[in-house]
């Protein structure tokens, strides 16, 4: 039996990038069209965004997708 895909965790650098850009959670939320609570949940890595929102966040910071999100295999 194959072991299946490795379990892992999606990490992100949104808090660092947001603070570097001088944005509040509310401002970032308004720019990408979500609530402040969603930005907070993503920063705390309690919630993994959809691909669309993830790309929107990367575009907002002007960086590549993998500069914002990383997958860490356990």
């Amino acid at each position: 039996m194959s072991p299946g895909p490795a379990r892992g965790r999606v990490r992100n650098r949104i808090r660092d990038l947001r603070q570097a850009a001088g944005l509040s959670q509310q401002q970032l939320a308004e720019r990408v069209g979500v609530t402040r609570q969603t930005i907070n949940a993503i920063e705390q890595e309690k919630y993994s965004p959809t691909l669309e929102l993830a790309f929107r966040l990367a575009r907002e910071f002007g960086v590549g997708f993998e500069d914002v999100f990383q997958f860490t295999a356990r």
Binding site: G33, V34, T35, T38, A41, Y47, P49, T50, L53
Partner: peptide, 9 residues
């Protein structure tokens, strides 16, 4: 009525 993707989840 505003619901973002996390609200919908």
């Amino acid at each position: 009525e505003f619901r973002d993707e996390r609200d919908q989840m």
